[in-house]
């Protein structure tokens, strides 16, 4: 039997969140003896990296629009029945969010979104997910034969399984288009998108104004990190909305999160408390963020950040 994984792609490459979903499925397949079949809409170069992370097959639906949840659901559903699969994995990203619940309704089966760990099959089938803004972990059991898991990005991590996937075109009928894409705006930059970033430098109202963001960007560049911000900063328009991390913005789980001039309100923590290491720089030693931090610096960002930049430069030079 196979585990079917739906992944999305950008510019011919499978997104990191998708590769992580493949990796998750491959780790599951190791114990169950299944194989992993990945499926994507549009076009990818070669196997798009699917093989290296554990897929043995990659199906590409060239005529399917990845933004059309109806078409994608039809395609994935057809593959599930062709493969006789009972386990379906997607990433819990914007594309996965369009497809996974639709599929659950179509198949009349159980779904868990935002999964953070491999399933426990010692008694039934249970997976873990974060609930109450990351303040607790719930163990959820699925009882239907078919099961859908949407994996929280950056929660499983990537490791190579070494292999290559047999690529073939998916030639089934995905049905009429229900959505047309008018325009795609992808920013040309070398910066890793925020949900996938492993290193993030974030700043808040403590920066006093958008004109002071230069040093934040410089520190991020030196560390090879992506920049982010707190909600008030994006609300008053100092930074774009897509940089806002928190409960209502992007939820991230980088390896390193550096928060500068952010007090650490519970709504902000909800979006970042999955980070592996947290560094907090704040003038107020009573800022609640220090309770969630691994490293803290009590001091003025305008004095501390230049020191960090200098140290990062020296560190890069010594590498």
């Amino acid at each position: 039997m196979s585990i079917v994984v739906f992944v999305s792609n950008t510019k011919g490459k499978i997104n990191k969140a998708g590769l992580e979903a493949i990796c998750y499925a491959a780790d599951m397949a190791k114990t169950s003896g299944d194989s992993v079949t990945a499926i994507t809409a549009g076009s990818v170069e070669g196997d798009g990296g699917a093989g290296a992370y554990g897929a043995s097959k990659l199906l590409v639906g060239a005529s399917v629009n990845h933004s059309d949840s109806t078409q994608v659901t039809n395609m994935v559903n057809a593959v599930i029945s062709d493969e006789g699969a009972s386990m379906i994995v997607t990433s819990h990203d914007n594309d996965g969010k369009q497809v996974a619940p639709r599929l659950a309704a179509r198949l009349n089966c159980g779904i868990v979104t935002g999964v953070t760990g491999l399933p426990d099959t010692s008694a039934g089938f249970t997976v873990k997910k974060n609930v109450f803004s990351g303040k607790a972990i719930a163990q959820v059991s699925i009882t239907s034969d078919k099961k859908i898991l949407a994996i929280l990005p950056n929660s499983h991590g990537l490791h190579e399984h070494g292999g290559s996937a047999e690529v073939s075109a998916w030639s089934g009928d995905a049905g009429a288009a229900s959505v047309t894409v008018k325009e795609v705006k992808v920013e040309e930059s070398n910066v890793v998108p925020l949900p996938e970033a492993e290193l993030v430098v974030s700043a808040g109202r403590g920066m006093k104004g958008p004109e002071n963001w230069g040093m934040i960007e410089e520190l991020a560049t030196e560390l090879g990190a992506t920049t982010a911000c707190s909600r008030p900063v994006s609300d008053i328009g100092w930074r774009p909305h897509h940089e806002h991390v928190g409960q209502t913005g992007v939820a991230i789980r980088p390896n390193l999160y550096i928060a500068i001039g952010i007090s650490g309100a519970i709504q902000h923590l909800a979006g970042v408390n999955g980070s592996k290491k947290i560094v907090v720089v704040n003038t107020d030693s009573e800022a609640p963020f220090f309770k969630a931090a691994d490293y803290g610096i009590v001091g003025d960002a305008f004095e501390v950040v230049p020191k960090l930049i200098a140290a990062a430069k020296a560190f890069n030079a010594s590498k």
């Binding site: 999305s8 950008t10 594309d95 959505v179 705006k185």
Partner: peptide
């Protein structure tokens, strides 16, 4: 006409 964030950018859709 709907705008939506995608990987590294945004897209405009028509329904």
């Amino acid at each position: 006409t709907i705008e939506r964030d995608i990987q590294g950018g945004s897209e405009v859709l028509e329904v």
